[in-house]
Each structure stands twice: as C-alpha cells, then as structure tokens.
Amino acid sequence: MKPFEYLEHTADVKFRAYGETPEEMLSNAAAALFKTMVDPATISVKEAWKVALEASDLEDLAYLWLSEIVFLFETESAVFASFAVSLERCVDETWRLSGEIGGERIDLSRHAFENEVKAVTMHQFQIVKNDHWCLQAILDV
C-alpha cells in the first residue's frame, strides 16, 4: 500500500491518501497535502506543533485536520514533515483528534516551493473504508 497518490485535475490538486487505520490515513493525507508545496526531504524536524480537534464525524474531522495544517503553515511560516495522529471516539459519538506536527520555520534558501495550498475544498471530499482506509481530497492551489 502506497501512502498516497496524486490524480489529474485541471486547476487544482487531487489526491488519495491510504492507511491501515484512520490515524495512518490522516497522517498520510497531511503528508500528501504538504508534499504538494515543498519536497519533504528538504525539511528537518526541529519544532513541534500540537493540534486538538473535535468533530461529529470522521470526514468533518479530516477536513478540520487538513485545514488546520494550511492555517499553521501560513500563520507560523513553517513547513512540516511529520504528522502523528491519535484518534478517540467519545461516548457521544464525536471524534477527537490530537496531533503532533513536526517541522521547521520556512527558509527560502532551502525550501523551494512548487505550489501554495490556499485551502482544502469539500469537493469530492470523502473517506472510504474497504481493505484499507482511503481519503480523497482536492486542494485549492
């Protein structure tokens, strides 16, 4: 199983991220999002950012998670290479995510940007569970 793959889209970036568990799928989706912008091999993990999110279903949570990464990238001027995700299903059926994102501050002499992800769209945004978990998303670039 590959962690993620990109699909053709005329104007934007479409990807599918996979995982044996929903945690792994969300981690791979974050990596797919970030690889759209900058080569992960050029990023060192020097700092960590913690994320805590809650949503009524897994799809909404995934949308919040990816949108949070775009927000952190822009407001922290940082690039990320590691995405640790843990999930909790609460008694009231809501989902909770705690994430730890590793990366460093942008250094344009080392980080060559190929794209700027402006937002995560909800167009064809879906999570499917067959043999493994799969998240499909389209990014506005």
Binding site: D60, Y63, L64, K118, M122
Partner: peptide
C-alpha cells in the same frame, strides 16, 4: 489572500 480563504473554510463547515 488568507483572510478570504479562511472565511470561506470556516463558513463552509457551518453550511455543510
């Protein structure tokens, strides 16, 4: 810029 992107993102969640 980011202002518009985030305003759209936030309200998209509410409207969905």
């Amino acid at each position: 810029r980011g202002a518009g992107n985030q305003i759209c993102t936030d309200h998209l969640e509410v409207l969905s």
